[in-house]
Design a protein around this nucleic acid. Structure first.
Lengths: 366, 366
DNA sequence: CTGTTAGCGCATTCAG
DNA sequence: CTGAATGCGCTAACAG
């Protein structure tokens, strides 16, 4: 029923080994034989048996790209970019030559599913794995991840991080591209401070994510530098950080959370003049909440996001945010995974985050 | 170096066959032996060799989900939803039991890459393939797709369409879930007509896509029903359809295209009072162009989209659009691919599209 | 440059 | 319920 390499060999009047050689192309074969073999392949409509091939070669052409939430363009853009570098251009025949199969795996942000996917990819003897986006900072999970990644690396799988800080004991990986979330958060806060804002609300992401923590740390760093973490005169240091806590609400990275967290924030601290959101999607929800409370952006309250997703420039007013070069980073991660590009010195590269000042932020009233 | 089934068998003091049986769980094994085997698996940190397993069983646990553009939430939402039904919940240990590996493949809308991915999945002896979104209506490509899908189906791969019309000769597939794009387009146009619009511009998607065609057909159907395809008095029928052509600009499904096509439309027909976009992303670009021309939405010109992506409700004014239940459709496609749900009668189900009237459309001026 | 020879690790007969 | 034997389809040494 199903045609095998041996069938092709028979028809081309060569040995199976020769067919294998022309198919894999990494071995000298006479042009005329190659020609004959390829014709036989086409005649018979032969398709390589991947599992058999992987078994014999002890490696597969699968490359996994793990994302936290594929419905979020933040991940979609990075993953799509990575695939462009991995999938190969195709030869237009749909015949599929030495292409890798770049596949996206959606963990939904769940640590268990992240590990499960890694195990599944390990099973398949994946050629490489790209992990994108923030990591969960749970010690047990981090340990499990380190162990799993070490095992993958042992088995020859290339590991690349994209938009994720390297693990503490993570020397198994080829390279880590990390975004300067802290610096971006800092510059965004500095921008608001320089406009004259003194009470700034922060709608943060889930507490255990590195992305959340780094952005928030940058934010607070800037406030501290501006002397804004000081509580009202006479209060002690604890009060001061309590105050910052009161100005921060955590939630998932989605629009709805941005909406609800903003309402909560406005209830807790009606005197805030600006709201910084964990990312652009959350910022959109924040904008909606602000408007539903009858306030105008930016006249009554400024709002800012993070990431600079494509829709952010089209918000009204256009969203002030921090641009992350998601496509470029994803593409680079893809190239690193393929070994097409040399890892950065030390294996770690920090990718700059650029402040984009637009209409949604302005000086506070009065 | 790498631990195999035989190693586990040795440690558990059973035969390899028995280990295989407990791992696959589809065969009676004594509880005590099972216990022993599982412990050995954990002790040795054994991970099944996927290729070997697939080779022997002649089927793999790979499920492919093809999308046109993963950076677009339209696809991200469907693909993510499908994965939730396929990936299995995981057992929390990251050990990975009988889970399928649901993977997303990004074709970038290219017919060649679509075929290449199918070939790659065919190589892997994928258990199922889900094809999402509009298809390219090129006869050669359609024929190639039919042939390829037939071969996949022959090899036991389940084929499911999601948001894509069945192929002409496509009886290889398990099921097709198709969106009522035509009906949605019709109702949207009817809505505008009922508001009093007579000159409606249309920013369409790429010409060869089924989605583009169906939405546009619905749109024109409604106009025709309202007698609006008639050219100005005295003109003949040809002039009439020429006029509709003049009110239509094609382009890719992205924001930038929406922006540029709208400028072009406004140049061609400055008297349009409403613009319908191929989808919400395009609509966002259209809105930006309209504003940059100094016009207000909806006072000076109405704008509408399609899909009702999450950000659409947050546009200002909120976008009138047609809602497609992307998550539900994706999830259902996932279940069909897994054989967890029975196919609809005839294998084809049409999914309703709901008109969402919001602030971006209103009666024309005067 | 090409053919021959062995497995790769597992699922599945078939016996017991 | 369990073990022994066979082969899935291909690649990778080795020889020529």
């Amino acid at each position: 029923m199903t045609v095998t390499l041996a069938d092709v060999a028979a028809r081309a009047r060569v040995s199976p080994a020769t067919v294998s050689r022309v198919l894999n192309g990494n071995y000298p074969v006479a042009a005329s034989t190659r020609e004959r073999v390829l014709r036989a392949v086409d005649d018979l409509d032969y398709v390589l048996n991947g599992p058999a091939s992987s078994l014999a070669a002890a490696t597969s052409d699968l490359v996994g790209i793990l994302v936290n939430d594929i419905a979020d363009p933040f991940f979609g853009i990075m993953a799509g970019a990575a695939q462009t570098q991995i999938g190969g251009p195709g030869d237009g025949s749909g015949r599929a030559g030495g292409e890798k199969l770049a596949v996206i795996c959606n963990t939904g942000g769940s640590p268990e599913r992240e590990l499960t996917y890694l195990t599944l990819l390990q099973r398949q003897r994946a050629a490489a794995v790209v992990l994108t986006g923030g990591a969960v900072e749970n010690p047990a999970h981090q340990a499990a991840m380190s162990a799993k990644l070490a095992k993958l690396a042992d088995a020859g799988t290339r590991i690349v991080f994209c938009g994720r800080p390297p693990l503490p004991e993570g020397d198994a990986l080829v390279a880590a591209l990390t975004f300067d979330n802290r610096g971006g958060g800092r510059r965004l806060a500095e921008h608001l401070v320089s406009l004259g804002h003194r009470r700034i609300g922060y709608v943060a992401g889930p507490p255990e994510r590195t992305t959340t923590r780094h952005r928030l740390e940058g934010h607070r760093e800037a406030l501290r530098a501006a002397g804004l973490d000081a509580a009202p005169a006479g209060a002690d240091r604890d009060r001061s950080s309590d105050d910052q806590e009161r100005l921060t609400v955590h939630g998932p990275y989605d629009r709805r959370s941005g909406y609800e967290a903003t309402l909560e924030l406005l209830r807790r601290a009606p005197d805030v003049t600006a709201i910084v959101a964990a990312n652009d999607t959350v910022a959109l929800g924040a904008c909606a909440a602000v408007r539903d409370q009858g306030m105008r952006i930016p006249q009554d309250i400024s709002v800012a996001g993070f990431d600079d997703l494509p829709f952010s420039v089209d918000a009204v007013p256009a969203l002030t945010t921090v641009r992350l070069p998601l496509f470029e980073a994803g593409a680079r991660a893809g190239r690193l995974a393929m070994g097409k590009e040399n890892p950065p010195p030390g294996g770690i590269a920090t990718i700059a985050a650029e402040l984009m000042i637009r209409g949604s932020t302005a000086a506070p009233r009065g």
